[in-house]
Design a binder for these strands. Structure first.
Length: 841
RNA sequence: GGGCGCAUAGCUCAGUUGGUUAGAGCGCCUCCCUUACAAGGAGGAGGUCGGCGGUUCGAGCCCGUCUGCGCCCACCA
């Protein structure tokens, strides 16, 4: 190989040059290997309808450093990428982008084209199939942009393993896993009160809840005992008075003990309701006695269930109060003021009515309360009764809960304390996992229901397809034994209209990527996986749901280790987000500093640790990359290849010995997923290597004092460079590949990680420290004298402890050369290392 | 209310099982255009390791306690 060292090496253009080469050469392809020789990674599929921010770059870079390390260690790295393109976020983006909305009652229009000027305020209605086509169209555009960015960042993903959560393969896996859950009784349908987003008109799961502050008013309102005297309750939701089922106080609350077992009547409507005792009523909240409605909050659901209260629903699925006057209201006239209104308007109306009737005590007092929102929604959730699919997750089964907690104990967590978030979450589950969504762009439930003679569905006897027939779309396909003409007819069938939530598919990502029931060889080679990397906010969702699915299907964990990243936060320690307007655009940062520099900064954020975004730090990474170029140019410019065995000079061997220790430390750190430590030790050594060792041997390496010393220095420099390039390769893939290409065959990323056996020379690493300290003092003399570093020194006296003196005398010639010392050095023993000298101006 | 984490230089962070005068980078000050590198290099200043108490020959590190900050969860009458 002919060395080809450029005259003016530069960082510009390296991303384009090498990412194209890696793509052309399929550098990061996974080649089927036995399980023990494979390292498999369950990469989080980013939501393609969103945008990638700097936090993503950091987290995915963390994974990539480990992937590159394991690849260099000789393992076949199975590193797929996925796009989460199914589900609500995509629907919302498509609605906005094309100015459409899905109306499932419309027929498919093959010639449909979206409006030229999308107006999302006045959307065009399209059929379900047209809508899904638009989703697929837009996601494929978004996905290309994501892939381009990841390639630019230098992720060593095997792009031939790319998957998306809406793809037929994913749909097949999701439906197959669901059918298996169904057959084992782990999936079931239930009609129950459900958290409901009134804007999106769909049920949502516990894991997708978010607390938000919401302004409201306390209203003190009179209910009436049989004798007409008042019982006051306090509520922030007076519009729910028509749905009140009971007043409830704590069993030990002396204020209300006499009322238990009696009834009171509701204001305005005169509904007779019982006063009951329940331990979940809290005496110090509000008036200490609560009105239980169906349903105002989750406590109401508990009371309704445990006290067998009637269901009096007034909130509809669109969030408005029902237009029909409820039949349980003795005095229904006031309801006309509420019918069809939003809760907000109904509240104003009922407050006026209560004020007029004298049942409002005092004025409403403002308050700020915490309310449940769907994390992607913008109106408070309501609770409505609806028929939904669930998967068991331990929320209602103590034995399963315990088993899943044990899975959390079994998993290796990096960092260790992230385990608590998992345990905490599982212990706090209050119900099974609701997986059905009343939406369109998602994996349909592979289920039909027979219709009886009256055309009513028999939900207890669903019709299911053979696994061989998957994926199915029950809205388009007829079940076996029926034909399409029987759809919706008495004696025929109907499709389950719902789709699975995104998490119900992404919870199967190990099954999807590893080829479960699709590619047995691949599955055997890759599952259970090694590494589960992602940031800490999805422990309760993605991580937990995959543990559930794997536990139910395979009775094992889906991976061995969870490597959890922190967030990138701004200077006020706030999480970056688009809504707060503080998001950093990755393209700008990558363009400004280069991918290697940004990756360097990412790698400096330890696992699990939030890290502030600071542009000045990016410059440090860039300087390191530049330094690698320049130092390499120097080393390789000295002369042709030298055998490692040519290292004869003690200081050359000492430098290599110190590097040996660095290699051991970096390897150990990487094995523990502590990529930051691996980088730190390599980087610290590299600066010492440049500032001290390289400067020290420069003159000798030029062969100014004979060929033998030069050859020793050149051999040591070349070996040190080769090893250091490989130590940096996981972090700075572009610049290390560039330098590698000057003098080595093949990609550095397929080179083997350095091993201790590569070191041919035995040296004393501590010598490098001693020499460094002496150099620092020699420079200090000139710095204090405020003269150039090439100014000659004479009458140099070096004092040091005996053993240090011995080491320094071995490099006397190099020291004299680098410090431009004229005459001999005088050595003297002393407790401390010190230098005195005369500066010859 | 429950859980977890953090508190070390102006800033961002290291500090491995307790062991001499506590480290790095950035920033700051001073100097140097030295032929790998001025998008550089050299030298330097800067810290009562959040407070209090304890264990120990010895504590940044272990124990207790208090304070402040962050995150997760719960409650949200």
């Amino acid at each position: 190989m002919i060395w080809n060292v450029p005259e003016n090496p530069a960082l510009e253009g390296l991303e384009a040059k090498w990412s194209a080469r890696w793509k052309a050469d399929d550098t990061y392809a996974y080649h089927l290997a036995p399980r023990a020789d494979t390292f498999s990674i369950d990469t989080p599929p980013p939501t393609v309808s969103g945008s990638l921010h700097v936090g993503h770059i950091f987290s995915y870079t963390h994974t990539d450093t480990v992937a590159r390390f394991q690849r260099m260690r000789g393992l076949q790295v199975f590193y797929p990428m996925g796009w989460d393109d199914n589900g609500l976020p995509t629907e919302r983006r498509v609605q906005k982008f094309y100015g459409v909305r899905c109306d499932p009652t419309l027929p498919y229009d093959p010639s449909f084209t979206p409006p030229d000027k999308p107006d999302d305020k006045h959307p065009v209605s399209v059929s379900r199939r047209n809508f899904i086509e638009l989703c697929l169209k837009l996601t494929s555009i978004d996905e290309q942009a994501f892939e381009d960015l990841w390639r630019r960042v230098g992720l060593s993903v095997d792009w031939s393993q790319l998957y998306s959560t809406i793809s037929p393969v994913s749909q097949t896996v999701a439906q197959r896993a669901f059918l298996r859950n169904l057959a084992r009784g782990e999936a079931y349908m239930s009609e129950a009160p459900t958290l409901w987003d009134v804007t999106l008109e769909t049920a949502v799961a516990q894991a997708e809840l978010q607390d938000r502050e919401y302004p409201g008013f306390y209203h003190r309102i009179a209910f009436h005992k049989a004798d007409g005297s008042p019982v006051y309750i306090e509520t922030t939701r007076p519009e729910l008075i028509p749905s009140v089922c009971a007043l409830i106080a704590h069993p030990d609350d002396d204020r209300y003990k006499d009322l238990f077992g009696t009834t009171v009547t509701s204001p305005l409507f005169g509904t007779e309701i019982p006063v009951l005792a329940h331990r979940k009523a809290e005496p110090d909240k509000g008036a200490g006695i609560a009105m239980c409605c169906t349903f105002g909050d989750l406590t109401d659901v508990t009371w309704w269930r445990e006290l067998n209260l009637p269901t009096r629903t007034i909130i509809q699925r669109d969030g408005r109060l029902t237009r029909e006057t409820p039949d349980w209201l003795p005095n229904s006239a006031p309801y006309a003021e509420l019918a069809g209104k939003t809760p907000f308007s109904a509240r104003e109306a009922i407050v006026a009515l209560l004020r007029a009737s004298g049942d409002l005590d005092g004025e409403p007092t403002p308050t700020t309360r915490m309310v449940n929102f769907f994390e992607k929604g913008d109106k408070p959730l309501e609770i409505v009764a609806s028929r939904q699919w669930y998967i068991t997750n331990g929320g209602r089964d103590e034995a399963l809960r315990q088993r899943l907690i044990e899975r959390g104990e079994e998993l290796q967590w990096v960092p260790e304390h992230m385990r608590h978030r998992y345990i905490n979450w599982v212990e706090g589950l209050n119900g099974d996992w609701l997986i059905s969504r009343q939406r369109f762009f998602g994996v349909p439930f592979p289920v039909w229901y027979p219709l009886d003679a009256d055309g009513q569905p028999d939900y207890d006897h669903p019709i299911i397809p053979d696994e061989d027939a998957l994926p199915v779309d029950p809205m388009a396909d007829a079940p076996t034994g029926f034909d399409e003409s029987q759809r919706g007819r008495p004696g025929g069938f109907m499709a389950d209209p719902d789709v699975m939530d995104t998490w119900a598919t992404s919870s199967l990502s190990p099954q999807i990527v590893c080829g479960w029931e699709r590619d047995p060889e691949l599955f055997a080679a890759t599952f259970p996986m090694d590494m589960d990397p992602h940031a800490h906010e999805i422990i309760r969702t993605w991580l937990f749901s995959r543990v559930v699915r794997s536990h139910l299907e395979f009775d094992c964990l889906p991976w061995h280790t969870a490597a959890i990243s922190g967030f990138v936060v701004d200077n006020d320690r706030k999480k970056f987000s688009k809504s707060q307007g503080n998001a950093i655009i990755p393209d700008e940062v990558l363009h400004k500093f280069g991918s290697d520099a940004v990756r360097w900064r990412a790698a400096m954020a330890r696992p699990g640790t939030d890290s502030p975004f600071d542009e000045t730090q990016m410059k440090v990474g860039r300087r390191l990359a530049m330094k690698l170029l320049n130092a390499s140019k120097f080393v390789l410019g000295l002369g042709g290849p030298q055998a490692p065995s040519a290292v004869t000079d003690p200081i050359d061997a000492a430098m290599l010995d110190a590097l040996k220790g660095v290699l051991a430390a970096a390897t150990q750190a990487f094995d523990a997923y502590e990529y930051t430590t691996a980088l730190e030790v390599a980087e610290a050594f590299f600066w010492t290597f440049c500032d001290d060792y390289l400067e020290l041997v420069k003159e000798r390496a030029y062969a100014t004092r004979g060929i033998d010393g030069a050859v020793s220095a050149q051999a040591a420099l070349q070996q040190a460079l080769s090893i250091q390039l490989r130590l940096f390769a996981p972090f700075l893939p572009f610049v290390t590949e560039e330098v590698w290409s000057w003098w080595q065959d093949g990609s550095i990323h397929l080179a083997t990680w350095p091993s201790l056996s590569e070191f041919k020379a035995d040296g004393d690493g501590s010598m490098l420290d001693t020499v460094g300290a002496a150099l620092e003092r020699l420079r200090g003399v000139k710095s204090e004298a405020k003269v150039s570093m090439k100014t000659p020194l004479s009458a140099v006296v070096i004092t040091a402890p005996d053993d240090n003196l011995a080491q320094l005398k071995l490099v006397e010639a190099d020291l004299k050369a680098v410090a431009n010392i004229t005459g001999d050095i005088t050595w003297a023993e002393a407790a401390d290392l010190a230098v005195t000298a005369h500066v010859d101006l």
